[in-house]
Amino acid sequence: MIGEVVMRQDIAVNDFLTIFVSSALVLVFGGFYVGIYTAVKVNLLKKWAMPIAYLFWMLTAYCLYLMGSLMHVGEFTAKALVVAAIGLLLLPHAVYFMQHQVHEENEH
């Protein structure tokens, strides 16, 4: 598998802008997702904002998909991108879970 036809296709000249913008937006939207999630959890935002956080995660996932398909990534890289997207989805949950537990232990 390794080393076979990973680079066969050229990227179309008109696709470059979309690729760069979507890959920058991956982390921008990802940042919004994480930021809103954290803000809701520390009560800076009301509970109703939570679905917006998940909406941003979906946008992140879409941008990853768009970027990956325009770049013609191979099967392996596509899997790596899916892992990264899921990692991002879980990250703030894990952070909050652990922060919460430590604070519980130390402050009560």
Binding site: F97, M98, Q101, V102, E104, E105, H108
Partner: peptide, 10 residues
């Protein structure tokens, strides 16, 4: 909860 130390916060 407060008494039991979870592995995740160790």
């Amino acid at each position: 909860m407060a008494n039991k130390v979870s592995v995740w916060t160790d």
